[in-house]
């Protein structure tokens, strides 16, 4: 294994984060704080509790998950797309680096950034609402697993995209709506029965539900289903990225 190459790619990507600190860290923290102001303070003041959890605290796992998903995808997709766009990908492809090492470097860096961001958002949230975490190990596990899975998904989008528009297409038109409709700001029990059934087909519901369970011990679906869904999505992404490298999809002509 070419550990030095993995470290080089990882370090390169992390250095980009520090160069774009405002965009990478500060902007998501500000937008999350705004969610707290709007949903937590303005709307939340009219909703006392959801499943015996104060509404302000109830939305914290959903907000963290929203940032985690969008930032994981954004970081990883841009990380691999930009070298393809600028042409510097030639160096990665001509280096003694295996596809696994390339993925480890890029996805590892994107996941790290998202996890750091998630932790910062949690800290920010704790300034607004009293927060308790019933299952901290599970919380960390969901955080890492989701960041890794969606960074891998972002990496796939970065390989698939052949323009900046496509790079934004999936995050904006698919992931964000699914996150909003996946119980980030409400419990599925609050929905009419028909919509509740429809929501069960939304994979993000399982992520948010599992993550929320690690905080409050309550979930819309079973924890096992949440873990299984996350692992299934991770497996799907791994299979897809393996196929992409094996066929040279959008990387090698």
């Amino acid at each position: 294994m070419n550990i030095r190459a993995v470290r080089a790619i990882y370090g390169f990507e992390m250095a980009r984060t520090w160069r774009t600190l405002l965009q990478s860290i500060v902007a998501p923290v500000i937008s999350t704080s705004l969610y707290f102001v709007v949903f937590g303070a303005a709307i939340g003041s009219r909703i006392s509790t959801v499943e015996n959890v104060p509404y302000g605290a109830f939305i914290v796992p959903g907000l963290v998950m929203l940032s985690l998903l969008t930032q994981s995808i954004a970081n990883a997709s841009f990380g691999i797309y930009f070298p393809r766009f600028s042409g510097t990908i030639y160096e990665i492809l001509s280096a003694p680096v295996s596809p696994f090492e390339i993925v480890l470097g890029y996805v590892g860096a994107a996941a790290t950034k998202s996890i750091v961001l998630g932790a910062i958002i949690l800290l920010t949230a704790s300034l607004f609402v009293p927060l308790r975490i019933e299952h901290p190990v599970w919380m960390a596990l969901f955080l890492v697993l989701t960041a890794a899975t969606f960074s891998l998904f972002g990496f796939i989008i970065g390989l698939w995209a052949d323009g900046f528009e496509k790079l934004q297409l999936v995050p904006l038109l698919v992931v964000t709506p699914l996150t909003f409709l996946g119980g980030s700001f409400y419990s599925v029990d609050m929905l009419p029965p028909a919509w509740r059934t429809v929501t069960l087909f939304n994979p993000v519901l399982y992520l948010v539900s599992g993550f929320r369970w690690s905080f409050f011990g309550q979930a819309d679906v079973s924890v096992g289903a949440s873990v299984a869904m996350t692992l299934a999505f991770l497996g799907g992404c791994l299979a897809l990225v393996t196929w992409m490298f094996r066929t040279g999809y959008r990387l090698k002509s």
Partner: peptide, 8 residues
């Protein structure tokens, strides 16, 4: 970066 990428 290039040197690291080549495992040196």
């Amino acid at each position: 970066f290039s040197r690291g990428l080549f495992g040196k």
